[in-house]
Amino acid sequence: MSSPLTLPPEPAAQRSRSLLLVLGGALIVATYVFLVTVQPTEIAGGMGSAASLVSLVGFLGGGALLVGGILPMLTTSSLVVIPLGIALNIAIGQIAGSLGMQIYLDAIGTVLVAVLAGPAAGAATGALSNALWGLFNPFALPFAAGAALIGLLAGLAAKHGAFRRVYFAPVAGLVVGAIGGIVAAPVAVFMFGAAGTFGTNAIIAVFRSMGDKLLVAATKQGLLSDSLDKIVVFVVVALIVYALPQRAVRQFPFARTHRVLGERSGGRATTPAGADTAAR
């Protein structure tokens, strides 16, 4: 195998930068815990410069460390789908945003990449798409860590079979969305005073009129909207991947080895409908 035209039989072990991953994850968790437990000077005397700074630096820095740890692990086949996941996120998210919808639909690309190429690629897609979207819409920027979390969780859910049946997908979406909503709430509160679209702000207003603190109201709203959003996103992604030709799915080792789509990820699918036609 010393031929110059062939590669060594075993693929070179990908360097893993687990230190960066651990650091990034720890920074994000620490930031969240700090924001929620310390709840620095909620409202009373202005908004506390430390809180917004911590949320920006902690979540962005944590996201950057995660991406730095993930990049060396990515194969070329995962690498080429991340940009298209990012482009899908932004393109569809812009449309949904401009229509003033109550849901964001800005994670379709992230979840799609996570289902096909795994949790690491999904997390990188989420973090980088919010970072890049920040170029067009700066309000997306601080949510990078939350988006990475969505990609990570979607990939793990896919690995454990959430996309093998279409009715599992909304359940997984509900759980992932709830977690994502809880994580995103402090960012929204401390960076922007929970400003969002009219739809999401109306929900916050309801809780505020019942006397909730802003962070509590925003968290409840996050639980509602993000869950609904991720239920729709997961169902849409499930329906898209079921409609993919096998050849397109097979090019992803993750989807193949973990049988992410059930029998659709490997051998020929049994045909679902139409076999009963009256035609000869």
């Binding site: 922007f192 005073g193 400003a195 969002g196 679209t197 009219f198 702000n201 505020r208």
Partner: peptide, 11 residues
């Protein structure tokens, strides 16, 4: 929406 939210609902 921020003005509406905080202007009207600020317990």
């Amino acid at each position: 929406s921020s003005v509406l939210l905080h202007g009207l609902f600020f317990p």
